[in-house]
């Protein structure tokens, strides 16, 4: 195995660049090293001006999402040896505006997130419980998969519709809405329906499925969205055919 590998990293310095450029660095090729280790090596020893986000370096914080050799990946989970002989292209996450180098602007997602009401909505008719909520393992199983989202935004980078439709709520947001809808402690399904069954909610999705392929935590947002389409369709039929019915 050779000693080093080249990484071609996107550089964008808003104070001096009009458009991004690429800078090549030679980094050690160690069999346990990930792209994140390589970037940290560059920042520590070669070029301290390189900017990127990272934190836990173990695939749970969701900070280090980047486009590596064309695929949306977590830099801390992408081994350099898997991209031999290189050079490894490291670009910022697709579909987001670039602030600097590999750092992208995530405000669009953050602004849309509260609309999914990603919290337990209580039943306002009842007083608050005086003991803890109880939930069986089967009840937790219903939503557990969708609770694994680490907001890494790889699904948004993978989704062609998000790149094209600025208003699309996106995979992670709808999966998160499902996480609460399917939680037995939650009573907010009606409120979320209004938001998520708007045209910029589930109906913009054409089930490309790339979001689920990109997801490092197995959340399957594509599945969450399709299931939600069924729910929304059932709800529409119910309200059209039985308008007097009460949920």
């Amino acid at each position: 195995m050779p000693d080093t590998i080249a990484v071609d990293v996107t550089r964008y310095r808003p104070d001096r660049d009009d458009r991004p450029t690429t800078q090549r660095y030679e980094i050690p090729l160690r069999k346990e090293w990930t792209v994140l280790d390589g970037l940290n090596y560059v920042k520590d020893r070669v070029d301290g001006t390189l900017s990127y986000r990272w934190s836990c370096r173990m695939g749970i914080c969701g900070s280090c999402g980047m486009t590596i050799d064309g695929d949306p990946k977590l830099a801390c989970e992408t081994f350099l040896t898997d991209h031999r002989p290189g050079p490894v292209r490291v670009e910022p996450l697709h579909n987001f505006p670039v602030i600097r180098d590999l750092v992208v602007e995530l405000t669009d997602f953050m602004a849309k997130l509260p609309r999914a009401k990603p919290w337990l909505v209580t039943d306002s008719d009842k007083p608050p419980p005086d003991a803890e909520y109880r939930q069986t393992p089967a009840e937790m199983d219903e939503y557990k998969q969708y609770s694994m989202c680490i907001n890494c935004m790889l699904c948004y980078a993978a989704c062609p519709v998000y790149g094209l439709e600025r208003d699309f709520l996106g995979p992670a947001l709808i999966a998160l809405a499902q996480r609460y809808n399917l939680d037995s402690r939650d009573h907010g399904a009606d409120e979320r329906l209004e938001v998520v069954s708007a045209p910029e909610g589930v109906w913009d999705c054409t089930f490309v499925g790339e979001c689920s392929r990109a997801c490092p935590k197995g959340v399957d947002p594509a599945g969450a969205i399709q299931r939600y389409k069924v729910t929304a369709a059932k709800e529409t039929l119910r309200s059209l055919l039985l308008p007097w019915g009460r949920r």
């Binding site: 505006p97 670039v98 602030i99 602007e105 669009d108």
Partner: peptide
Amino acid sequence: TEYTGLYQRLYR
């Protein structure tokens, strides 16, 4: 959406 003030220099 409210951008963080870096708006002018964001590369899209």
